[in-house]
Nucleic acid binder design. Structure first.
Lengths: 334, 334
DNA sequence: CCCAGACATTGGAGCGCTCCAATAACGTAC
DNA sequence: GTACGTTATTGGAGCGCTCCAATGTCTGGG
């Protein structure tokens, strides 16, 4: 910067003004500085700037799982709002573990980003709460007391999935759980609530938000000889893995077993998959979250807000009435 | 930091030493400092640190497209190496456009990251070359003179794809181009080379590395009434989109038309897709690239290196011999 | 009991920038 | 030509840290 100032024959302060294109700089000097900067290949040092300015004009985004395109859609929405408000985005990924997530947040805190968005949080609420004390922070996908959040009504979503299957005539339904995945607990609750109110068995098998988890669950179900007539998978990724393994094992979907997912990611609407699922307005959620962070940054609001968006059932080709023999068995059993 | 020093009854310098856990600090002081830091909720300021240290211990990763899980695998590999060497990762995404990519690189340069990895570069080489003058920079997916790179032998990969289809008996083959996508040009070249040497028509339709592009191309082919017996799509994403639209239009894959992709992403091996494709050792490529960046950072090497890994054909269910009537037509035409 | 040599601790300069109060330059009206 | 209100420009302090040379503290051998 000193070099540029010297080369342009002005003071360091003026260079600073030009670089931030302040209003009150004469065209003559502005050009002189810009020229010199260009000639010397000068590039402002963001670290020094954010140190002096005490703000970084940057938002940190913690992506729970880079392999899940659900998060890519969220980022699209976030970027849109950040861009429009002159903020840069910095991403970090957490490989679905709470330790990596904490590390990512910690890193952003140390970099002094102006706001943090945690997509699909896996960590405990107190980590997030503590982090949000110093920096505006919003979670997407699940909410914690005292922390801003944008969530889908996962309880309702779980209900919708269960209701859809029950309405098709299914009685033997398994829920493939999402483990510590964001929103998984509520989806399970919603499912369980419906099943209970219908007087049906609540069968839940452990899992997580991955394709592999779906594969493993299917294998277990097949091997145990207790394949149900329908499965509600905690997310699309798991659903796809499940369908895969089920098909390989000779259980066709939906003829022999119906499968419903959650998220309505790109995967789900592929013709060759045609996954029935619960839609979350992903891009919209990203936008909303970014707006909440920026609003808090500006207003200094202390009270947490939680924005709930509504899920929607999307029926495609992986769900159908249960196979006939099963219906007969049930009927004769009455 | 001053507060912590005061609270612990030591100098600022000592706090600094403790925070970086330097060796020669007495246990007594170390605990005093750590306690105070904890009590006050002190968190080192990374911007100030990197300013003073003149290095950030951070690598910047520019991801061309967050929706393409190909890049997620690369990041896995990069992270592994970075982690092992005490480096943090910071990601940025480029939405497949060269302007966004340039901006992302520019941002990393301003943040003074220690090294930059550009996954699937879209921008011109000179941008990258210029950036790499100040900071170790490596591209993955395509290479530019003077810039470190890790690439797959895309020319050979394109050849393999074409050869596979020709060997199955196809004569009427279309290449769905990858546009400005990394490696697309070489894949096309490889394809064209084989077709030419076989005396076959070189049909190329424009496209890019997205599902949507595949959909659009299929629609165009169908509408023009010139659906070939086989298509080589520039990447898996496009291949999947293509298959989707083809199926909807009543052209079953592979019975009526064969499709081969490129990358061997997670998508490809899903049972319901079972995409024949060309494999790239993704995680391995990520590791390699990270190693190259770190090596250059340490050695200050000036000469660019380019590491080429070999592609591999993975045959699944989307390719088969062409439908019989076509073979007959060709035979009778001889 | 003193002193060399190891180990611990500290003050202060400096990293590259922004911010602010102060000064310089410029018009314009009288 | 002077005084005044603008608009441009500048020096210097300070952001929170690390680094280095200097100082302080503690051993154990003579």
């Amino acid at each position: 910067m000193d070099d540029v100032a010297q080369a342009a024959g002005v003071s360091r302060a003026l260079v600073s003004l030009v670089m931030r294109n302040a209003p009150n700089v004469s065209d003559k000097r502005r050009h002189a500085v810009l020229d010199a900067a260009d000639r010397l290949g000068y590039r402002p040092n963001a670290a020094a700037r954010s140190l002096a300015e005490r703000r970084s004009n940057t938002l940190g985004v913690v992506v729970n799982d880079l392999h899940n395109t659900f998060f890519a859609d969220l980022v699209d929405g976030i970027h849109e709002i950040a861009q429009a408000n002159g903020f840069r985005l910095l991403l970090n990924t957490a490989w679905r573990t709470d330790t990596d997530e904490r590390e990512a947040i910690e890193a952003f805190l140390e970099y002094r980003v102006d706001g943090i968005l945690v997509l699909g949080p896996t960590a405990e609420g107190d980590t997030l709460l503590e982090a949000s004390r110093n920096t505006p922070l919003v979670t997407i996908g699940s909410s914690f007391p005292g922390v801003d959040a944008v969530v889908n009504d996962d309880l309702r979503g779980g209900e919708m999935a269960a209701e859809h299957l029950v309405q098709l005539g299914h009685r033997d339904i398994v829920h493939l759980d999402g483990g510590n995945g964001a929103g998984a607990a509520h989806r399970r609750e919603g499912f369980a609530g419906v099943m209970e109110s219908m007087g049906l068995d609540i069968r839940v098998v452990p899992g997580e938000f991955t394709e592999r988890s779906g594969l493993a669950a299917a294998t277990r179900l097949v091997e145990s000889g207790s394949v149900p007539t329908a499965v509600f998978a905690a997310n699309d990724l798991a659903a796809v893995g499940l369908i895969d393994a089920l098909t390989v094992a000779g259980h066709s979907v939906p003829e022999s077993v119906s499968v419903i997912g959650y998220d309505n990611t790109h995967l789900a609407h592929l013709q060759h998959i045609g996954l029935t699922t619960i839609n979350q307005p992903r891009v919209e959620m990203g936008r909303l979250a970014a707006e909440i962070v920026l609003e808090r940054l500006e207003s200094g609001r202390r009270q947490a807000v939680c924005h709930v968006v509504t899920p929607k059932l999307v029926v495609r080709e992986t769900t159908a009435p249960p196979p006939v023999r099963v219906i007969q068995r049930i009927e004769s059993g009455i």
